[in-house]
Structures are given as structure tokens and as C-alpha cells.
Design a binder for these strands. Structure first.
Lengths: 216, 216
DNA sequence: GACTGTGAAGTAGTTCACAGCT
DNA sequence: AGCTGTGAACTACTTCACAGTC
């Protein structure tokens, strides 16, 4: 009865989506319970880490038995805030933006593409993956139409900061930046970045140094 | 004169591509020297971290002056192994694979798309971003045609392990996995993963918990 | 007997703060 | 005076190891 809401370490938060993926698989295989060691094996980590991570969620398994898959799945979705959808607005209808909008993986995982916007009038009105490209001026309207929209920056690096500023003005609270550029936002806005080439560069480093550094 | 080749921490390696990006920008602006604090500001970190990171490379700046941009740029490319190109073979010509192959950002940064392969005969022979899709059976040939090819897995999760195995058999030494699945490889193979939806899930977590956790 | 939950120990990464060079 | 390079202090994260529960 001690749902201690301890502060969850960032490293743990980053692993929760992995556990979620594993649990979805177990549930669809009709597996009822799972031990920390088995979950760890499927997620590519170790049992102690799983137990400590889950303990931060206030999730209790059963000693001698393990964790109830359905209950843990529910709790994981709850913890990650995935009991609701988070519509995404993609800014930039170039290669990367089209790619992300066409890639079905976002919608499947609770992040439907609500809109795509682009500053190029030639692109406005074209269709990408069933969504019509809208002008950047529509941003505020798009944010107002939906609840808690996440902004995705898929533009060249040199306009990334301007796009981020526009997203913030439009009322977006969370931004995912795919552009290879540093972006800064007011402290109350959540910001994360993904650099598609960065991991290739890291691989290049380890190949050049003839050391293997495996990462799940 | 003490080019100590200390082991470079993984956290430092992950930041080198950021420094590289900043240095490329400074060099194109014809800026000759940069201090650790300025470099830190442009990379979104702090000065002490920059100095410590650069010290692992055995890179020496000049006290009272800073770092020579061109020299540091050269060293950074050298450290990352980017004095050569690393051709990439994309496995999977679905939405994600087409996206990655069309996305010019890889080629620009030294990772040209050498080939795209797919197991679907209907896709083989079609063109994506100037490259003809080849059958999976061509993998070994593609690896032999080029030096040090990096394999990129852009398939659905349920075939990711089989693709990884095929890449290893074909002689690939480094793999970047975009599929949302755990993949394991022999210890001498470098493996990294990128999960496009994971960062959205992390944003969802922080939004739900109404805490802002900014990340450069 | 099996397996969780967690303090304690160990390891990695960050930041401080300042000596030392230009 | 300005700025690097780095031990030392600190903080975050991981792993161990075992008491507690089923």
C-alpha cells in the first residue's frame, strides 16, 4: 500500500518503451505471467535492472511467481501516458517528413499523424500517406483542433530553431527534433532529439577502433 | 607529446558527432579558433564536458586561446573514422526503408546507400532514390563489392533477427537496427539501434508527469 | 524452491575548481 | 588575463546479494 512515487531515473524511463514492446508481445501470445529474468532476456537487459525499474513504477510482482502480464502492461501504458493517443504534427514535407508521415509505426503505437505542414506553397495541398499538406500558418489552428499535440521537426537543420519557435508560439508543449541542429525552447516545453546519422557515426567510430560495443 | 590513447567512454563517443556538426559549421563560417565554452554552447553541453571529452582524443588546445577549428575538425573526423565513406546496405524496401534510402542525410554525412534489398520479388527491380532494389540473395555480393559495408535493418520487427543473421553471414561487421525488436549478433559484430517511436513515448511520459526534462 | 524488492557496493559519467601554460 | 587539462568531489546508474514472501 505504499505507492511511493519516487522520482523515476531518466535511464529507467528510456527503457519503459522496451518493456512495453515485450509485454505487448507476451500478451498477444496469451502468456499470463513473466519473471524479471525472462522479461530482461526479451528486452536485452538483466533481471536486476528490470526489478529495480519496475519498482520505481510502484509495480508489485508476486514473489515466487513473477509479474502478471496484463496488469504490468496496463501499468506500463499508464506510466508512459499511452492510455490516450498523442497526435503528431510533422513540420517539413521533404524526404524526411514524408518518410515519417508514411511510416506507419507512429500511428500504430499511439501517435497518429494529425497534420503535415510545409512552408513551400508548391507542397501545400499535396497528399502524403492520406494526409494533405497544410501551410505553416495553420499550426495554431491544428494545435487548437487537437489535444496535446506533439510537434515533430523534419526540416533541414538551418530552419529547425525557427520551426521550434513557431511550434511553441502555436501552443505545442512537446517537440521531437529530427533535424541535425541544436534547438532550444522555454523550460516548460519538453524536447527530445533523434539524429538518424548519429548512430551510423558511432558505428563508424567502433569499427575504426576495432572494438565491439554492442547495444541492445 | 603524450598521445595517451585512453579508452574513450561511450558517453563521450556519443557526443563526438555533435562536436563534428558544430565544427563543420564553424569551419564553413571561416572561424579559426573556438573555446571550449563556445563549442559547448553550440553543442548544447557545458565547457567542462567539452574539455574532458576532447582530452580523451589526445587533442590539445592552446591555453589562453582555445582550439584550432580546422585541426580539431580533422581530428574529430579521424577519431570517428570518417576519413573514409561507409557504404550502407538498406534491408527492407517498405515505408521505412524507402524513407531512409530517399533521405539524403546519410550520403551527405559519409554513408552513401550502396544498395537496397528486399525479399518481396514485386519490389525487386523498382527504383528508390536512384538505387534499384535487389534480391536478398545478393547480400553477400554487395558486401564483397564494397569495403566495410554497414547493414541497416528497416524491416518489420518480426523478421529483424533473421535479417541480422543474414547480414552477418554475408560478412557485414556493423549493423544499425531500425526495427522495433531485439536483435542479437556474435560479439565481434557492432550493433546499435534506433527506435523512431521510442522518443515519442518518452515525451509522452514526461508530458503525462507534467515534468519538463529537456535534452539537447 | 522460486522469485521479488531493495539496501549496499560498485562503476560510470559529470561537474568543480584550480594549477599551469600562452 | 584567458583558457586548457585534469585530479578530486559529486551524482547517477548498475549490479550484487540476500531477506522476505508466496
Amino acid at each position: 500500500m505504499d505507492r511511493t512515487p519516487r522520482r523515476i531515473p531518466a535511464a529507467t524511463v528510456a527503457r519503459l518503451p522496451e518493456y512495453l514492446r515485450v509485454l505487448v508481445g507476451l500478451a498477444s501470445d496469451r502468456i499470463a505471467t513473466v519473471s524479471s529474468d525472462r522479461l530482461a532476456e526479451l528486452a536485452g537487459v538483466n533481471g536486476a535492472k528490470v526489478r529495480k525499474d519496475l519498482s520505481y513504477l510502484g509495480t508489485y510482482g508476486t514473489r515466487g511467481v513473477g509479474y502478471d502480464v496484463d496488469f504490468l502492461l496496463f501499468q506500463m501504458r499508464e506510466a508512459l501516458g499511452l492510455t490516450q493517443d498523442w497526435p503528431v504534427v510533422v513540420v517539413g514535407a521533404g524526404n524526411l517528413g514524408r518518410a515519417l508521415a508514411n511510416y506507419g509505426g507512429f500511428g500504430e503505437r499511439g501517435f497518429p499523424v494529425a497534420a503535415i505542414v510545409d512552408s513551400d506553397p508548391a507542397k501545400v495541398g499535396t497528399e502524403i500517406g492520406g494526409t494533405i499538406v497544410r501551410p505553416v500558418a495553420d499550426l495554431a489552428g491544428i494545435v487548437a483542433e487537437h489535444h496535446h499535440v506533439i510537434g515533430v521537426i523534419a526540416t533541414p537543420g538551418h530552419v529547425a530553431q525557427a520551426v521550434a519557435d513557431a511550434l511553441v508560439v502555436a501552443g505545442v508543449q512537446a517537440i521531437l527534433n529530427f533535424a541535425p541542429a541544436l534547438v532550444s525552447v522555454p523550460p516548460h516545453i519538453s524536447l527530445r532529439k533523434v539524429d538518424l546519422a548519429l548512430e551510423l557515426q558511432v558505428l563508424s567510430f567502433y569499427q575504426s577502433h576495432r572494438e565491439t560495443r554492442a547495444v541492445g
